[in-house]
Every structure is written in structure tokens, then in C-alpha cells.
Design a protein around this nucleic acid. Structure first.
Lengths: 110, 110
DNA sequence: AATATTAATCGTAATATTGCAATATATAAA
DNA sequence: TTTATATATTGCAATATTACGATTAATATT
């Protein structure tokens, strides 16, 4: 069907999946890395840096913004984007907790 | 197009995206959590636990296996799955490095 | 006001993902 | 050897994602 059955999972599972999904595209990884590198960055610079068309970058920025990982400020005709550090930290917390899980049983593995 | 332009990104960016993508579905998050909880788990138990059809679970397991995050051993008619701890650690390392990035510039944010 | 600049949105084509019924495969048990 | 059990594979329908050209919107500049 192409649509996930989110209702059968916990809120935490769905949230982890949503954050992972938005990082699950190399263009968005590249955008985030660039924003960490430059602190703030105008949309047009990302288009040049990354090499995808302007509407495509704009779409990826929108997804990152929807999840709160970045924020954008209008500056004249350009829009300046940067990491939303507070939300990034929250996401990092959630993902780290998931990644750092330990095997909870001592039964031998297969 | 539906197809990512992976060739314009670095290997690291593509790898991060691939790992994030496979975690980007709540069913796979749930499977991984269950495997951490029980150490090893038979496919059929995951079907019961998670509540998706057997072919669907089987497909998700395949994706996790393709990326090396889990491994499966045949035990009679069942297949026992567990976390591949070595590869999980490598993935964790890569993702943590990405998540723990710090702003590298002191220019003010927008 | 007219024009240039920048980014967002719309529309669309190509492809990927999700989920499951039906079927195939492989081993165990009778 | 037949039958039961467990998992994988196939095929398909519904939906989502990716990418971009064309256009729109919004502000700056002349």
C-alpha cells in the first residue's frame, strides 16, 4: 500500500522512525552537515553547494523544517537557514537512547 | 523520479542515509527493540508481537539483514534472528558522529 | 512603477515503499 | 512418504518519495 500502519506502534517507535526517515536521504544529510559547518546558510548557497535543483533543495529544507530540525529566517529576498539546536538535541537524545540499547537477555544468540 | 542522486554525495553521506532509512520505519524499530529485549527471536514470534502479516515482517527482516544489522540462523523449520552486534556498533559509531556534530562557526545564527 | 533576485509552490513523471494474498521452499514429525 | 509447520518469494495494488520545469510570491533595486 505504501502507507505505514503507524497505529499499531508506540508513539516512541513512530517518532524514532520519523526522525530517522528524514535523515534517510543523502541530500538532507548534506544540508545538515553544511548548516553545522557554516552555522547559518542561505538557501541559494545550499543549491550551489549540493548540486540539486532549487525546488528540490527547497523541498528537502521544508521536510527538515517540518520536523523542527532547522529553522529559517527571511533576510530580504533570501532565506537563512540554521540548525534548531534545541530540537536537534531532543532528537539526538531519542536516537542515542535507541542506538545505545544493550542486549537485555543473557540467552545465547543464534 | 523517486530515485536519489547518490552519485553527487560522499560515500559517508550515502551510508549515513542508508542506515537512517532502514531505521525509518516503525516496524523495523519495533523489530530491533524486540531483538534487543530478547537477544534472539524467532520470526514467527515477531509476527505475533508486532501484528503485521508474515510476509511483511519477513520483508522488513530482509532489509535489516541486507544492511547487516541483524543475522538469522535456521533452526529446524524456524529462523532465529538476532542483532549483529559488530555491525550495530559500527553503525552506531557513524550515526553518533553525525548526531554529535557541533556548530563549527561562531557566526550568529539567523 | 518596472525590473531583478530569491525562494516557495504547483504539477507531473519516474521510481520506491508498504502491505498482503497466494504460492513456493525447506525441514520436522507422523 | 505423507503431512504439518515455519519462513521466503512472487505478484500486485495503493501510496509515498524524489526530482525538476514552470510558475508564483515577496522583497530589493533601479
Amino acid at each position: 500500500m505504501g502507507v505505514s500502519k503507524t497505529e499499531i506502534f508506540t508513539a516512541q517507535q513512530n517518532t524514532i522512525a520519523l526522525f530517522a526517515k528524514v535523515i534517510g536521504h543523502p541530500a538532507r544529510v548534506a544540508i545538515l552537515q553544511q548548516l553545522f559547518k557554516l552555522n547559518s546558510c542561505v538557501c541559494g548557497d545550499l543549491v550551489l553547494e549540493i548540486g540539486l535543483a532549487q525546488p528540490t533543495i527547497s523541498q528537502h529544507l521544508k521536510e527538515l523544517k517540518n520536523l523542527g530540525l532547522i529553522k529559517g529566517n527571511v533576510e530580504g529576498t533570501s532565506v537563512c537557514y540554521c540548525i534548531d539546536q534545541e530540537n536537534w538535541s531532543k532528537m539526538k537524545e531519542l536516537m542515542s537512547e535507541f542506538l545505545n540499547q544493550d542486549i537485555q537477555s543473557n540467552g545465547s544468540c543464534c
